[in-house]
Write a protein that binds this DNA or RNA. Structure first.
Lengths: 233, 233
DNA sequence: CCAAAAGTGTTCGACGTACACCCATGC
DNA sequence: GCATGGGTGTACGTCGAACACTTTTGG
């Protein structure tokens, strides 16, 4: 049954933790303390433990790296990476996840990392210097996040509650790299049942008319979607 | 580095191979020749080999199980299943794939299977008697296939070339369990650039006016989508 | 008063839906 | 002729895009 041909291996869980900070779409990267790829930036992650399934391991790593409360989490699995030579330490198959988080404090570096930083998505992808195949994982996370904003209400996961419609629109604009019509966006999200729930409060924002504030609604899917403009193939 | 805590395990690749046959949405199931779950229906699959990545293993298994030419394949990864107790033989993490295939001959049973059959999706899910967690995998494959028809041109992968627009509409109707307006559907797919390409030929179908025949186009995404009706949340 | 952000009103055009109607074949 | 499936014409309603305009705050 256990043919010698059947690879015995370890599973790594890697996390693309995305956030919107400082008018910028950012990802949490660590600097690797140990070989291989010592000193290179990488996605946070770790090995699957004996008593865990991969999703639970991802939640554990996310908590360890960001101290994030798991209750509001959006965690989505990306394509498994298992090229036989992707890790020089031996056979390691990575199960990568995309996590969407509101603006968080910079976490402290853990045991496996000599540093942890929020890095703008553009520069993380441009330099293409990430350890292992993490550049490919990150590119997939970016595209998935952009697509999820079209078809789901997940954009609210980027916002701390309570948030304004302007905050939410800002998420769309930063993640998509576009601008949206404020009025039409406001109508769209308020008229989509379950997207956002009014708190009844308002919030002043320095200048301009105070905005009504909202909490996340219960709907997860967005019908009809909000399409990116222009449409990319 | 290799903490004792880090699980050493095997990876299984499981395939939900979907097709439309006899006006019915069907999946390829094998009957397990060996324990565990001996005699139960299961998705075809096998263990990852030393020199393979998971996608390549899935393609190999697919060829072995169906003799299908890999060039026209639609293969999409589903959620990794890795509950520690999902396989009594030890720690096995499954990377499941959904494959979409045109109506194929019934494959011969392989070494690990005492039989292989096309089974209607409804009965495969209703009985809930599939081995391991394959029932959950299959349910996910069903929902993904339905969603993919909305947003991609993948429905053509269910058809042998050349096919008619009626063949393609039949795929939508069987997979979604709905009926569609033939005229509107025809306009939609012919006006969507790259969905289908006319061959110039026609095909008689017993009775009725002969239909123009088409090949698959090069487009993969469908803008705007074809939504299921009524919209389900 | 002016700038800036929030939110509403309104017009226009694109597109999906429904359904009538014609086309081309087998029986 | 008649049934059957293929395909076009067309009217209607809905919705998104664009943008003018009002509201409400800070300076």
């Amino acid at each position: 049954m256990a043919d010698r041909d059947h690879a015995l291996l370890r599973i790594a869980v890697d996390l693309a933790i995305l956030t919107v900070r400082d008018a910028d779409f950012q990802v949490l990267l660590i600097e690797r303390r140990n070989p291989p790829h010592q000193g290179l930036p990488a996605l946070p992650g770790g090995f699957l433990r004996d008593d865990e399934d991969p999703e639970r391991a991802a939640l554990r790593e996310l908590r360890e790296e960001t101290s994030l409360d798991a209750s509001n989490l959006i965690l989505e699995q990306l394509t498994v990476r298992g090229a036989p030579d992707r890790d020089p330490r031996g056979r390691v198959v990575s199960v990568p996840y995309m996590a969407i988080a509101p603006d968080l404090p910079i976490p402290t570096a853990g045991s496996d990392a000599s540093a942890a930083h929020w890095v703008s998505m553009a520069s993380a992808l441009r330099d293409a210097s990430l350890a292992f195949d993490h550049g490919h994982i990150l590119a997939e996370a970016l595209e998935l996040a952009r697509a999820r904003l079209e078809h789901t209400t997940v954009a609210t996961a980027f916002c701390h509650e309570p948030f304004t419609i302007g905050d939410l629109r800002h998420v769309y604009e930063v993640v998509w790299g576009t601008t949206l019509d404020a009025g039409n966006f406001s109508r769209k999200v308020t008229k989509t049942e379950g997207f956002i729930e009014a708190t009844g409060d308002r919030r002043a924002h320095g200048t301009g008319r105070p905005a009504a504030t909202y909490r996340r609604g219960t709907a997860r899917r967005l019908h009809p979607p909000i399409f990116r403009n222009p449409i990319e193939i």
